[in-house]
Amino acid sequence: MVMMTKDTTALYAVSGGTADNILGNLVWFSVSDMEILRDELVKLAVTVGLPEKYVPAPIRPSDAFRRATSEIGGVLRSNEEMTEVLMVREVLSAEERVIRHLIKEVRDKKNVQLHYEKIGEIEFERQWGTISTVALTDEAKPALHKAKVLYSKYRDYFISDHIRRLIKVALGDCQAVGVRPAGAVYFTPAAYEPTIKALNSLVKTLPGNAVEMHYLPVVNATEQKQMLEEKLRGHVLSQVSQIGSMLGGNAQVLNVKKTLKSLAAEFAVTLRAQNVVSKTTANHAIYQLQELKEQVAEYENLLESNLGEVRATIDILRKQVRIMLDRVSTESGVA
């Protein structure tokens, strides 16, 4: 038996055991810089039995363009008298094209002045997914070349952010609950072990050593159940706080609440004061609260614990959002 330290999970894990004696798994992972074609990732996922739905959608060329051009700015040169900074500014975003300018900002420290000069231009053609550049000065050429290189990379290859998103979405479907505030360590119920195993197999087949994932089973014991119930309540608090923030609440205020009851009261205040939230946002909040309620019910069965007050509170919050949605629809003239 291996005991995870207090700084990580404070949960006991075992390297083996019968299925009847296992609550679920502790899962942790890390992702560093990597590149992989989407088609290759899809093939690997299918091979290990992971549904293709977890693979992020194909990259939009316009997103690759914006990401690439956003990374070419920075300090060109600096001394005691002045600093020259390269900035990228979007001047046009139309149906057929996007244009961004390279601007050199000169910060004159001696005379406390700012000077601006356009030194280059980058144009993205949406129909063809191509970019063209114009260098007005020699110092713009390295940045423009870098933009082209990065665009080719981000257009064709998934990077670490995509892999991280894949794992997190899959863990979300596995009803994962974070058990370590300062790091990516999660608990997933035993029912989702096939997905966890498929994820782990996928990680092992990815090129290089950029992604790492481990999982250990958690034994079915009173101490572990109590710990998981505590973590679940914390998870619910965090999720409700995020939903409240999405609806216009003060995230800093919401996050300091110590109980679901007090958080719910703050949530109610937010909804009474909020009149500008969109119908789409309100419906999304209702959906998230329903998903959260179902997750709580699943853990209630797993932990053999009565979490009825948590489910009831979530139901109240859903009704409050529904009332707000009806009010906003009426005020905006939406039937």
Rank of each mutant, 00 (worst) to 15 (best):
E96T: 13
A282N: 04
K43W: 08
M324H: 13
S93L: 10
G178P: 13
E117G: 08
G49D: 05
S201G: 07
S262G: 06
M246H: 02
D161G: 00
E294I: 05
V218L: 06
K148S: 12
L206G: 05
L44I: 05
L202P: 01
E71G: 01
A268C: 06
G234F: 03
W28P: 13
G249T: 04
K225V: 04
R233L: 12
L166D: 01
S93T: 12
A182Q: 09
K279C: 13
Y299G: 12
E229G: 13
G17Y: 07
G73L: 13
K279I: 15
S305R: 15
A19G: 04
Q295I: 14
L23T: 09
G49M: 06
S15T: 11
Y215A: 04
E291Q: 15
A190Q: 12
R322M: 11
V211H: 00
E80H: 15
L325G: 02
M4A: 07
D315I: 14
T270C: 06
G73F: 13
V88N: 00
P181N: 10
A312Q: 08
Q224N: 15
S241L: 05
E193M: 11
L237Y: 08
S62R: 12
L247Y: 00
R180D: 11
D7V: 12
V253A: 03
G129E: 01
K53R: 15
K104P: 08
A297Q: 09
A10P: 02
Q226H: 07
E266D: 06
A198D: 02
S305D: 11
V253K: 04
K319S: 13
A265W: 09
Q295V: 13
